[in-house]
């Protein structure tokens, strides 16, 4: 083999880094893209944070203050899932918009390496978007998300993973339907919001909606957040459900992706997927 090419893990890591470098180089040069990452989390935080402040100023009592904190905590944590999902889907769309997929898929990059790169970019995009909002929540509303303790890492992890499998589903639909499915990259997870019990407990939902809510890891994560914020408890059962559901949904999304990727190779869609 010419040029001393290596095999195995090092080469795989390099290919993953190559795909991440492609996106980092893009962000380094494009301030609108960087601004977009922080714009929505901060906007959401401001709207709901000032709403919570207003309600707290009009009504006295610990319950109202706690409700305000839950609202801000919900906004920040839900942004973790939203940004993680968009991070994967939009990074994939960048390849379609630049008509670069043909070159990417004829390189030795394996599909799982592409996904790993998209997940890596999603993590960077999410942190770039959400960390400033968390800092702003502390400055504007004296709300410290990390005050609930190390459990916040588990809440973050479950929501990130949920964002990832939803995104994998969106990417699968883009592989199947091309640009026609593009709008889902921005909108799909918003549709999960009512069922995710972000701002209220699952018990508030009508009975018919509860099974749907309980099938989503996010509803268990937010129950866990409320347990931590209101009672200082770690709701292991809820976190266990969230992790288990995430594992099941991830397997389902991976199977869907594998099926749609193969379908795209059968239809020849990898060369003209943007059309």
């Amino acid at each position: 083999m010419r040029g001393g090419r290596r095999d195995g893990r090092t080469a795989a890591m390099r290919r993953i880094w190559g795909m991440m470098y492609r996106h980092i180089a893009l962000y380094r040069r494009s301030w609108p893209r960087l601004l977009e990452l922080t714009y929505w989390p901060i906007l959401q935080l401001c709207v709901w944070g000032f709403t919570a402040s207003f309600i707290a100023s009009r009504a006295n009592g610990g319950a109202v203050l706690a409700a305000g904190s839950l609202l801000i905590g919900g906004v920040l944590l839900w942004e973790v899932a939203l940004r993680s999902q968009m991070g994967v889907a939009v990074s994939f769309l960048e390849e379609i918009w630049s008509r670069n997929l043909g070159h990417v898929f004829v390189s030795p990059l394996r599909p799982w390496e592409l996904i790993a790169a998209l997940l890596g970019m999603s993590l960077l995009r999410m942190l770039t978007g959400v960390l400033p909002a968390i800092g702003l929540a502390w400055l504007l509303y004296a709300f410290n998300l990390f005050a609930i303790g190390p459990v916040v890492v588990l809440l973050f992890a479950n929501l990130i993973i949920m964002g990832w499998w939803v995104a994998l589903g969106v990417v699968s639909l883009i592989l199947r339907h091309g640009a026609g499915a593009e709008a889902l990259a921005w909108s799909v997870l918003f549709g999960f919001t009512p069922f995710s019990a972000v701002y209220y407990p699952v018990s508030v939902l009508p009975a018919a909606m509860r099974p749907v809510a309980l099938a989503l890891p996010s509803s268990h994560v937010f129950e866990g957040m409320r347990a931590a914020m209101l009672h200082g408890e770690i709701a292991w059962t809820q976190l266990g459900w969230a992790a288990g559901l995430n594992a099941a949904w991830t397997v389902a999304a991976a199977l869907l992706f594998a099926r749609q990727f193969r379908g795209a190779r059968q239809r020849g869609a990898l060369l003209n997927i943007g059309e």
Partner: peptide, 15 residues
């Protein structure tokens, strides 16, 4: 991406 960045990406992809 610049020409150099593009070539760098593919240099990584092809190890």
């Amino acid at each position: 991406l610049t020409v150099a960045e593009n070539l760098r990406v593919y240099a990584h992809l092809y190890d």
